[in-house]
Design a protein around this nucleic acid. Structure first.
Length: 898
RNA sequence: GCGCGCUUAGCUCAGUGGUAGAGCACAUCCUUCACACGGAUGGGGUCGCAGGUUCGAACCCUGCAGCGCGCACCA
């Protein structure tokens, strides 16, 4: 048996065991297994992604569930993979292309650019997978999927075609959220409303039929006024009733536009008159439709102004144009005022710039199976944890808008629609066309291209990434139309662990897709993780630089330390404030367990082989006590796992090992492990240690897989060639069959001893002799059973000697405590020179300008007379208090010794 | 505006009706043969505020305040 280092070194151990598990194919799921299936699918991280703490929390939780399920005898499939992340990945490769070669994707062309993305994906796409492995994730890597795998892509096309045939997908020109940087439409969910400090401009338009008379209008977007096709007022607004139906003069390009009445207009806001720009505002677009207004598009897709009739602005960026437009208004005398104004502006989730509402031709999906999906959560078939998210979900489901699924990108699943080329040429461009413009023979919607490929042109757009992600739970398990053994065994999945931020993006849509395409719900439980913030409460983000790299943390504290530390601070409901100190605690905890085992091995004296069987009837109370506590822990964990309270489980595991096993049990049995102990006592102690530790390591394993596997192997708790991770949890309690009364009696006595020892240490510390091991204690009125445990009590209390004297008469002032093990006294005769101590203290007090009065006789009544300035007294308050306490103690002793 | 959540020790958080808890930090002591990534002891909280229910409230109810989040937005 090799000498163990004093501190646990996780790095090599973790790598070793992960490799061993992989070699042993421990993570691979067997669909033909006779065991019950348990499955999870990973929320596929972006293929471009690198691991952040959110991933760590999320995947550690899944790993815990997977490992626990294996211990419960389930056949486990944790299915991993990555997401192609259309916008993010394309943007990354485009940036690289621009930086390295100064080219755009259009310079390369679609085919060549996509080749580059694939090359990039092969090169960098595996990073996050490697990082998950470093964390210890027990995914079945042999089944790793990618949302652009051949068979997965089949699913995406198939689903599009099917929904199209059902009439749920259609193409049309509508107001969408347009990202001027990514140059694509976005779904409503991809727009982040962000509070902005803006300016509210009030300007005036001249009435066409009454020169010199004006109507005042407030706007935040003067740069779009070229696109105004009306001014709207509320029909109930007395100020403007007289204007309704008249016309006003739009300043540039000059034109007369109507004043219309619409209920949408808020009387309270601004001047009560609203400029209507149907091409660049969602609400204005609606109003435009209601009144048949002209739609005047004055912006290029990239956000530059498009208005040849207004050369001063044409071609300017929208924000530059805003300033310019204001200057123009001012020079025309039409600008009334400019106010600071706080409002919310929609930002592109990926590109972080304000989106532009824009009318364009896009593909839209009317969601399927909405009713079923809503009910599944409402009636508990799918359980959300914490439950309150169900309300958020329900609210969204009730207010569903059509999903804009087309993206003007190249990286992604291309829309499986082809148009007849001659028809397209005839109509100039597909961009201008809606479904209605194509006769049935001119359009082909299918998984495969038209048989006669020549003469057809495919729709250039790709689908929203989430249009592939929503199929993840089943499209990863079987091909289109296939009922694979995996699907049969593992679908629906049991648990989904994900963040509440993608409840609409992903969770809700998966539920709908599950009903529509896989015959039912995709999972039974959804556990929503918390958001990890920094200590100031800010979200972790790259730009803030407040997001610690989990790999660095693992280098420093080990994967187990990181996992455990995070688990312990992750509350069920609210956000986590991340503190590296927690991770340090995780590492310290691993070290503590390691050292407990190290102690066991050292105590064994290298003799090898130990006796696990034990005669329970003759065991000391500490043994039965710790075993009972372990049994209690096992039972509690089973219950708490059922409640998905992962932080509490970590806390319970921590407390058991540290406070119960190490601080109490191990200290109490130390005597029995010494050379001087009887072989029987040694064997019994080793036996209890092993019985408890081997089970404990198993209970801890889902949280700290590596160190538990390492110690189980090192201690011989699992047969060579097998793994702790594959070992089923024992069905029987450790103390099964032992009479309850015996256990209770043992536990009561152990508790009494532990408490008495604590009181005795407390006495020592109060007398400033906390570290002395030679003190003599006298116990009066001790219970009869104490005699047998005096040695242990002495060890725990750090006593030199304990005398049981039923008739003991303590001198007055002797420190004493009432304990469950009797009245304990700590006689101080001969321990300190009381008089010398009194003189020393008095001198110290006088040195800072105070006089000790009434020192004679009872020093305990000593009081200070201030001769020093008050600020000195305040400064020295702490020391004075300490000395006062000492004098009090000395006074008691003096009296006692007299 | 609607909805949800949070507010307990210096910090991060447990605590769903019965004597306020943990870890960290702090103070004092201890390198004694598992562990200083450790041990011992200690100081520190009118549980956001105000009412109510109750024999009894950190906990249940109502209102208020502060913070955060989601949805919807008034240009």
């Amino acid at each position: 048996m090799s000498e163990l280092p004093k501190a646990y070194e996780p790095q090599a151990v973790e790598a070793k065991w992960y490799a061993a598990w992989m070699d042993g194919k421990c993570f691979e799921a067997d669909p033909t297994s006779a065991k019950d299936g348990y499955s999870l699918v990973i929320p596929p991280p972006n293929v471009t992604g690198i691991l952040h703490l959110g991933h760590v929390l999320n995947n550690a939780l899944q790993d815990i569930l997977a490992r626990r399920a294996r211990q419960l005898g389930k056949e486990v499939l944790w299915l991993p993979g990555t997401d192609h992340a259309g916008i993010a990945t394309q943007a990354k490769v485009e940036r690289e292309l621009r930086d390295a070669e100064g080219k755009t994707r259009r310079d390369l062309g679609r085919e060549e650019f996509l080749k580059r993305v694939w090359v990039w994906k092969e090169k960098h796409g595996g990073i996050i997978i490697q990082q998950l492995k470093r964390l210890g994730c027990s995914c079945d890597w042999s089944r790793e999927r990618f949302t652009m795998d051949e068979d997965y892509s089949q699913w995406v096309s198939q689903v599009f075609v099917e929904l199209f045939k059902q009439g749920l997908i259609h193409r049309g020109k509508r107001m969408v959220n347009w990202c001027p940087v990514s140059l694509t439409a976005l779904s409503d969910e991809e727009v982040i409303m962000t509070p902005q400090r803006s300016k509210l401009y009030t300007m005036r338009y001249e009435l066409a039929d009454a020169p010199g008379e004006f109507i005042e209008i407030s706007t935040t977007r003067p740069e779009t006024l070229m696109g105004d096709s009306a001014v709207a007022v509320n029909p109930k607004d007395p100020r403007y009733i007289k204007h309704i139906g008249r016309r006003v003069r739009r300043p540039f390009p000059a034109a007369d536009i109507p004043i219309i009445a619409d209920d949408h207009v808020d009387l309270e806001f601004g001047t009560g008159a609203l400029k209507i720009t149907p091409a660049h505002d969602k609400a204005d677009f609606e109003i435009g439709l209601r009144h048949g207004l002209e739609i005047i598009d004055v912006l290029h897709p990239d956000g530059r102004v498009h208005c040849p009739a207004c050369p001063e602005l044409d071609g300017l960026d929208r924000f530059v144009a805003r300033k310019k437009a204001v200057e123009m208004l001012e020079s025309m005398g039409l600008l009334i005022k400019v106010e600071e104004y706080d409002n919310n502006v929609g930002f592109s989730e990926r590109a972080h710039v304000p989106i532009e509402p824009r009318i364009s031709m896009q593909w839209f999906l009317k969601y399927p199976c909405v009713q079923q999906a809503a009910e599944a959560v409402a009636n508990g078939d799918i359980k959300f944890r914490p439950e309150r998210w169900a309300k958020t979900y329900a609210h969204w489901m009730e207010n569903l808008q059509d999903w804009c699924i087309s993206r003007q990108l190249w990286w992604g699943h291309q829309i499986p629609v082809w148009y007849r080329k001659d028809k397209l040429d005839e109509l100039k461009s597909a961009e201008a066309l809606g479904m209605a413009d194509f006769a049935a023979g001119d359009i082909h919607v299918g998984v495969e291209a038209p048989a006669e490929a020549a003469g057809w042109v495919r729709d250039e757009d790709v689908m929203d990434t989430w249009f592939s992600s929503w199929l993840w739970p089943f499209a990863t398990m079987a091909g289109v139309g296939e009922v694979s053994p995996t699907l049969r065994k593992f679908y629906p999945t049991a648990d989904l662990v994900t963040g509440p931020d993608i409840i609409f993006f992903w969770v809700a849509r998966m539920i709908m897709a599950g009903f529509q395409f896989a015959g039912g719900l995709p999972f039974k439980n959804v556990y929503f993780t918390t958001i990890i913030r920094d200590l100031q409460g800010r979200k972790m983000s790259k730009s803030l630089g407040n997001s610690p790299d989990p790999i660095d943390l693992m280098e420093k504290y080990g994967a187990d330390g990181l996992r455990f530390g995070l688990m312990r601070i992750a509350p069920v409901g609210s956000d986590v404030r991340f503190d590296e100190a927690s991770i340090e605690e995780g590492r310290n905890f691993a070290n503590k367990i390691y050292n407990a085992c190290r102690f066991r091995q050292m105590a064994e004296g290298g003799s090898g082989g130990w006796q696990v069987s034990r005669e329970q009837a003759s065991l000391p109370p500490y043994h039965l006590d710790i075993m009972a506590k372990l049994d209690e822990l096992s039972a509690d964990l089973e219950r708490i796992y059922g409640e998905y309270r992962f932080g509490e489980i970590a806390q319970r595991l921590y407390e058991f090992l540290w406070s119960e096993f190490c601080d109490k049990f191990l200290e109490a049995v130390k005597l029995d492990l010494r050379e001087s102990a009887t072989p029987a006592a040694r064997l019994a102690t080793l036996g209890t240690f092993d019985a408890v530790m081997s089970r404990y390591l198993q209970l801890l394993h889902p949280y700290m897989p590596h160190v538990t596997e390492e110690l189980s192997a090192r201690m011989g708790y699992v047969p060579e060639g097998t793994f702790l991770m594959q070992q089923a949890l024992p069905e029987q309690a450790l103390l099964a069959g032992v009479a309850v009364e015996r256990i209770e009696l043992a536990q009561a006595r152990a508790a009494d001893i532990y408490e008495a020892a604590g009181r005795m240490r407390n006495l020592k510390a109060e007398c400033k002799m906390g570290s002395r091991k030679d003190l003599r204690f006298v116990i009066k009125a001790a219970p009869a059973w104490l005699a047998g445990e005096v040695r242990v009590l002495g060890l725990l209390a750090g006593a030199g000697q304990i005398l049981l004297e039923p008739g003991y008469e303590a001198a007055k002032g002797t420190p004493a405590a009432v304990t469950p093990a009797g009245e304990v006294y700590m006689p101080l005769e001969g321990l300190i020179d009381v008089e010398a101590e009194r003189v020393r203290l008095t001198k110290e007090i006088e040195r800072i300008g105070l006089e000790v009065k009434k020192c004679e006789g009872k020093l305990g009544n000593a009081s200070f007379v201030e001769r020093a300035p008050p600020e000195v007294v305040v400064q020295e308050k702490a020391r004075l208090e300490e000395w006062r306490a000492k004098l009090l103690q000395l006074g008691e002793m003096l009296t006692a010794l007299a």
